[in-house]
Each structure stands twice: as C-alpha cells, then as structure tokens.
Design a protein around this nucleic acid. Structure first.
Lengths: 150, 150
DNA sequence: TATTGTTATACTCTATAACTATA
DNA sequence: TATAGTTATAGAGTATAACAATA
C-alpha cells in the first residue's frame, strides 16, 4: 500500500482514471497541433518509423503502431498516393510487401522534425529540467507498459 | 542545457518526438481497452466529468474536452439518445443549454469505474511504487502543460 | 454585433468480416 | 491449412463553414 501523501502520490484507481483522461485529451491536443496539410499524425508516425528503421512490412507496421491491418493498408495507400512511400514485392515471400520511404518521404520526415514538433517543444521548453526528467521517465514507463518495445 | 546522462534524460527534440509517439499510441491502446458496447471513450469522459462536477453547458464541455463545439453537439446527441444525459433550457440565458446526467447515466459512470479501468489498473498494478509516483507526477505536468486545469 | 449552439459537409481514424494470393 | 495483405462495410472522431436564436 502506498501512502497518499507526497508529490503526485495517488491510489491506483485514481491514477488509472487520471491517466486515461490525460492520455485521451493530450492526444487530441497533439493531433491538432501536429497534423499538417500534407500528412496526419498517424501517417507521420509511420513515416518517422520508416526513416529510423528502414524498410518494413504492413503487418509489422500495424503491430508497431497498434492498429489493425486494414487501417495500416489505408494509411499506406494514402502515403503511396502522396508519393511518400513505395510498396515493393518481397523477394522471397510472395505474400509479403516491403514498404520504404521515397526521397520525398525522407525529406518530409526531416522537415517535420523541425516544424511539426515545434509547438510541443515550445511547451516542453516552459517546464523545469526536473519536470522534463520526470516526463522522460514516464515516457519510458508508458512504453514498457502500454506501447511495447522499440 | 541539460546533460544527456542519467535516467530518462534526453534532449528537448527527442523528448518531444517520443512524447508525441507515446501519447498517440497509448491513446489508441486505451481507447480500444476502455470502449464498451454502451459508450465510447470520448462519451464516457463527458459522463465522468458531469458525474464529478454536476451540470454543465455544451460550450464548457467542448472547451474542457478540447474538442470543437460541433463535436460536442454530436457526443451529447448520442448520449441523449442513449438516455444517459438530459439537455434542458438555461433559466436565464435562452442561448445556453444545461446538460446533466440522468439516473441511468450516473449508474453507468459508477459501474464504469469498476469495469472500464480494469485493464489499465492491471497494467499499473504491475509496475513499482516508484514508477507509479513518476506516472502520477507526469500526469500533473501534462495536465498543466497540454490539457489545462481541472 | 457578439455569443451559444446546431446543422451541413467532408475528411480521417478505427474495427470486424470476407476475400485473394501465396506458403 | 495457415499467413499476409487487401477490400468491403460501418461507425466514431474530427474540423471548418454556414446558420438560427438569443443577448
């Protein structure tokens, strides 16, 4: 049993409810501030993964992003239409598809890092070093607990 | 400038990017685990607010939830159809509408606290007290920085 | 004229079920 | 038979623009 006193110390039930609300609303706020005319937040997330990890498959991307396969099919279709990713046949396994960034896609990701996260970096810039450290630790905890490795 | 060494210590750019991804994906995971046959995550969030704060108006709810007014109109329409909230005329200001929980709505919120957050409480139950404290602090920081008060 | 709320319109996001092709 | 991916279908989530009613 944890004591109720101290900074940020709450019961599990309350923490769960607060976390649910903060994640729900924060993601709304983030979406509206990180979507651009070019690509949505979800689409950009896929591009950023590909930029970091190289080529992948629709199934692996769906699993990584925690969306169902048909959703990833649609995201990739939009990105392909926009000329940001290319789908090619897998050399050994004819069922699989390899997805990779085009040059245009690479450029968009790199540009995005500067512009897209500007709003969020501004907000993060307003808090203390100590608070940034806490956020960084929380990110790691959430990744292990909810999002999964990588 | 903060040093890169130590637990969870990262540059602002990296923290912003990681936070963006974790919030996006966590909210997806949460939505899928907290939606029920009865109401979606967004709908439940409105019900929970009303249960805690009593009656409100569509405009105030839209602001609190960080959605546009038409979105709140739709959420309230669904909740009203389901018999979970009631809309009544404002006694003084004819433009405004007062929204309040019905008895059915109240019951659903209370039941929801037990059942709806079960999955998340299970995940939170697996981490250490220290990690829970960090999450609690992060919730407070995100609330101040992104979500706003209350 | 300004505010509150709704309607109209048009996307994206999301899931489940059914289908196709390959292994 | 199992797996990878797509298509079909349906609904939730979201925003901007236009509108109506009231202050």
């Amino acid at each position: 049993m944890s004591t109720e006193a101290g900074t940020g110390e709450v019961g599990d039930e309350q923490l769960a409810a607060e976390l649910r609300r903060v994640l729900l609303v924060s993601s709304r706020v983030l979406r509206s501030h990180t979507a651009s005319d070019e690509v949505s937040a979800s689409q950009y997330s896929v591009l950023a993964y590909l930029e970091r990890s190289g080529e992948s498959t629709p199934g692996a991307l769906a699993s990584f992003e925690h969306v169902s396969p048909p959703v990833m099919t649609r995201i990739l279709a939009r990105l392909e239409e926009a000329g940001l990713v290319a789908r090619t046949a897998h050399p050994q396994d004819g069922r699989q598809v390899l997805v990779s960034l085009t040059t245009t896609g690479e450029e968009l990701v790199r540009r995005g890092r500067e512009e897209r996260d500007e709003w969020l970096r501004g907000r993060i810039g307003e808090i203390t070093d100590e608070e940034r450290r806490t956020l960084g630790e929380a990110v790691a905890i959430l990744r292990r607990t909810l999002v999964g490795p990588r």
